[in-house]
């Protein structure tokens, strides 16, 4: 693992991995979507059950993204390694994107199911807060000019957010049970039948691979950008 902390070795590894990861992701998307359209409509949700296959994996990936970002931030803060800083920075817009995708698809599913585009449901609300955390992180990074300092400062924010996220999650759940006793959500709804599990897991894998493909690509681009800048600076005007 440590071997690949060297940017050059990392570039070698990642440029070898990216095509395979991308291809695997595309193949899994094809299979997952095919399976997703093949399953019979749900007896309660009808055709809209298919939204689940693009919605739930997006939400999972968004949370995984924050976890990876926080882990990379911790590594960057403790070992002061620029590659970890770059990895944390590269994960943030992806996380924000997958969170937004989760919110939008959730909203599209909620309209026919709950009769409203937006419901102040616990999960929706905590996901909206997660999106704000991502946006705050990106805004903070963009506002600080010195890149090393920006990395460290943003790492602290990511870690504070990581500590606070479970509390936010808990408080929002607590708040939902407080305000929405007559929730539109069915309590103890039908357990997911295995018919739906296969496409769901395939799609989850596809999303995960997509995330890693894009993440590695973004890290590569950032390393190359820094090299180009340094080369330009070394050359002089």
């Amino acid at each position: 693992m440590l071997r690949y902390a060297n940017p050059t070795r990392f570039l070698q590894l990642s440029s070898a991995l990216v095509p395979w990861l991308g291809a695997a992701s595309a193949a899994l998307f094809a299979i997952g979507l095919y399976l997703g359209f093949r399953v019979p409509p749900d007896y309660q949700q009808g055709e809209t059950v298919r939204v689940m296959f693009i919605h739930v994996p997006a939400a999972w990936t968004a949370m995984m993204g924050y976890g990876l970002m926080a882990a990379a931030s911790l590594v960057g803060l403790v070992w002061r390694h620029p590659l970890a800083d770059t990895a944390a920075r590269a994960a943030a817009p992806l996380g924000a994107l997958f969170t937004a995708l989760g919110l939008v698809t959730g909203s599209l599913w909620g309209r026919p199911m709950w009769g409203a585009w937006w419901v102040w449901d616990g999960r929706l609300t905590s996901f909206l807060l997660l999106e704000f955390l991502y946006l705050g992180y990106i805004a903070l990074w963009n506002a600080i000019e010195d890149e090393t300092r920006a990395a460290r400062v943003c790492a602290i924010l990511a870690l504070v957010g990581a500590v606070n996220l479970p509390i936010i999650e808990f408080s929002v759940d607590w708040w939902t049970t407080l305000h929405q006793g007559e929730s539109i959500l069915r309590k103890g709804g039908p357990l997911i039948s295995s018919v739906y599990l296969w496409p769901l897991f395939t799609m989850a894998l596809a999303y995960t691979f997509l995330f890693f493909t894009l993440w590695l690509l973004r890290i590569e681009t950032e390393i190359l950008r820094r090299r180009a800048r340094n080369a330009l600076l070394a050359e002089g005007p």
Partner: peptide, 20 residues
């Protein structure tokens, strides 16, 4: 300008429990 964007999501639990 950035401060509220960073701090407000982190303060959600305070507002929830406080108003509760």
């Amino acid at each position: 300008l950035i401060l509220p964007l960073i701090v407000l999501p982190l303060l959600a639990p305070a507002v929830i429990f406080g108003a509760g």
